[in-house]
Design a protein around this nucleic acid. Structure first.
Lengths: 206, 206
DNA sequence: ATTGAATTGCACTGATGAGTGCATTATAGT
DNA sequence: ACTATAATGCACTCATCAGTGCAATTCAAT
């Protein structure tokens, strides 16, 4: 009764306790931040004895490390490669924008951002970790824009800035309000995507 | 020697200790967040006895409240009124954009954002406080765009979203990198402003 | 110089939280 | 059944931190 067996607790305490712990860490850290969660709470959420945390991990920080590692690899699979060749510019930009929005849609993503901003002050490696996951996408997007420019489809003097602008158009209407204006009415994703693409092409289409 | 007199310490401990405390709170809270600063540190930074904090304020949270109150009124004076009538659209948009960038330029502004995002989880009134300061500007901008549309200068079906887009264009190239990509090369403010205005007008100019 | 308010120093309380040591118990694979 | 491994319970240590009570002290204004 005290030690829940694997059959009565889906968190699989006995075997795979590490995974159960990291799962719990993801649920708690993303909602309340690193400093806002105690090891006791973490143990309870994982359905595991407090002492087990220290059998499996060297420290609280280590748990956060492993959690971020897992999240990073998950995020890394978000935008499928080869999207760039699936039609004309307008279509591809729409696909990318939709991918980005879907990617940021789950509340846990906002939680990840909040945790990054919050605990990144004390642990800069957190910010670096998220950046190293996000940056490649931005770079890929920049390369795509450069390609379109060399082909003569776009007239885009600063591809990197253009990439930032495009994401800014999306974030300004979606992510930003979610971070700073908790209860604001947000436009529909379809409108956001459509208008971002329109404005971007109005400026840069050759 | 132990208690620094007003003449040797500009923080004016004896008289105006409240102000000295709020000053210290601003320096510390904006850099390390509410939870990251102890009352001992705060007292030392203010050049004041720890006990004085509790003579002047009911609690640590009260100090934060007063600090945010002061910052809010300061921010409220940032964008001078009447900018909307100082020339043609392009010129005014440029002025607004420059105002926004100047407004966000100081490192303390990023500190304020970080603190808002971080401690806003535990104290939602922090987020609300910042939002109540920023929102009026967004609303004013929206009204300006609506006006331009009714006058026939812009063709802008969703003024509120357009306002978000314009700010998104700026933030995507400036604020966002500062929050999430610590050591990234950023474009010059002039280019950012110019390109934001160009893209915006390329889409919405009637 | 005296008075009254603000400030100070210091020793408290009470709570929380990370991390450890160790003996005990349950489990999985043989 | 047996054994190695993992999990557990529990009582610790050590540190930090918000907040309080109180007596002593310092300063400013009269």
């Amino acid at each position: 009764m005290k030690p829940p067996s694997p059959s009565e607790n889906p968190s699989t305490p006995r075997t795979g306790s590490r995974a159960a712990i990291v799962n719990a860490a993801e649920r708690l850290f993303l909602n309340r931040g690193f400093g806002g969660v105690s090891m006791d709470e973490l143990a309870e959420e994982a359905g595991v004895a407090r002492r087990t945390l220290y059998n499996q991990f060297a420290s609280k920080e280590d748990i956060l490390r492993e959690m971020l590692l897992r999240i990073s690899t998950q995020l890394g699979r978000a935008l499928p490669p080869g999207i760039e060749t699936q039609g004309d510019v307008e279509e591809v930009l729409g696909l990318i924008a939709r991918g980005v929005l879907a990617f940021q849609a789950p509340p846990e993503f906002v939680g990840l951002l909040r945790m990054t901003v919050a605990d990144g002050r004390q642990f800069p490696w957190i910010t670096a970790a998220l950046d190293s996951v996000l940056k490649p996408y931005l770079d890929r997007f920049e390369r795509y824009l450069s390609h379109l420019m060399s082909v003569g489809v776009l007239d885009c003097p600063h591809p990197f800035m253009a990439a930032q602008q495009f994401l800014g158009l999306l974030n300004g209407s979606t992510l930003w309000p979610r971070l700073f204006s908790p209860d604001s009415v947000s436009s529909s994703p379809d409108t956001v995507v459509e208008e971002a693409v329109r404005m971007f092409l109005a400026r840069y289409r050759a």
